[in-house]
Design a protein around this nucleic acid. Structure first.
Length: 273
DNA sequence: TTTATAACCTGAACGC
DNA sequence: TGCGTTCAGGTTATAA
């Protein structure tokens, strides 16, 4: 569910409550997540939080004992709230901070993850889940030359290619469709069969759509809420995602829906070739 | 090596 | 109302 803008919105929301604050208590209410939650995550307890960062869709909460890795999966959200607020079903993991506040991970589908990377295990960038990730989409390393090189000889669809975390991180199902629409590229087109000028455009549009969405606080489709429980406002800006049968905002043609590797994919049959 | 598919899980929406 | 079916924003492990 949450894509990069949602995760970044969440990160920015929780950072002021965590950074420089001491963790008083850690509560694991449900161990059955993507991977079993190890008791080692308790090690953050008693430490002052020194960093709240993001890598791909992982949120990294660092103290001098190690780093807590959080992933929101498809249905996860983080919320900052006072200790007294009643717990909800699917509040699986809780960090109590000084001042009576808590950060709660709520994740009905439990595709999310809560992991501990101890300082003794070396740099967090060498964590098995992070080590092989491609570049962040908003950095200079993700550019037309890089994307063109990555596409060369690839027979898979451009949409699948851009959703591959080894190519570039953080581009999920919504923004893949949106960036391809803005670029005029049909999602089913083979990655290795697209002119470099068009890939250059795609590079720009990926950066653009993600940046715009972050400014709007992410996309709320069903259950994404920001750290303060409010929705994001980017949905109103979507051109194709979840708009099957509705008129294209550019040419009025009916938006089509197809399936690429079991994921719903939306495009305009006239604007995207 | 690359690509496609199955699997993880709950809940909302829909049709009958 | 109730039941069954389908679908959902992600990622890894396994198979082809």
């Amino acid at each position: 569910m949450p894509e990069l803008p949602e995760v970044e919105t969440t990160r920015r929301g929780i950072e002021p409550y965590l950074l420089g604050h001491k963790v008083h208590h850690v509560q694991i209410r449900e161990k059955r997540m993507r991977w079993p939650v190890d008791d080692a995550v308790q090690k953050i307890s008693g430490h002052m939080i020194q960093g709240v960062q993001r890598r791909a869709k992982y949120i990294l909460i660092t103290c001098n004992a190690g780093t807590l890795l959080l992933h929101l999966g498809m249905s996860g959200s983080l919320r900052i709230c006072p200790h007294e607020l009643a717990l909800k079903k699917h509040d699986h993991f809780i960090i109590s901070i000084d001042g009576g506040m808590e950060m709660r991970l709520h994740d009905p589908r439990r595709f999310g993850a809560v992991l501990w990377h101890d300082v003794s295990e070396g740099s967090i960038t060498e964590h098995p889940l992070l080590r092989h990730l491609g570049p962040e989409p908003l950095v200079d390393g993700f550019n037309p030359d890089y994307l063109a090189a990555s596409c060369k000889g690839r027979k898979t669809s451009i949409k699948q290619h851009m959703m591959n975390n080894k190519v570039v991180v953080g581009v999920g199902n919504i923004y893949a469709s949106e960036a391809l629409f803005r670029s005029g590229i049909r999602p089913t087109r083979k990655a290795g069969n697209i002119a470099k000028t068009r890939l250059a455009r795609l590079t720009t549009e990926i950066k653009q759509v993600l940046t715009e969405s972050i400014k709007q606080g992410g996309t709320t489709l069903r259950d994404f809420l920001r750290e303060d429980g409010k929705p994001g406002y980017f949905k109103q800006k979507l051109n194709v995602y979840d708009r099957e049968g509705e008129p294209c905002r550019q040419c009025l043609a009916s938006i089509k829906k197809t399936t690429i590797s079991n994921r719903s994919t939306y495009f305009c049959p006239k604007c995207q070739t």
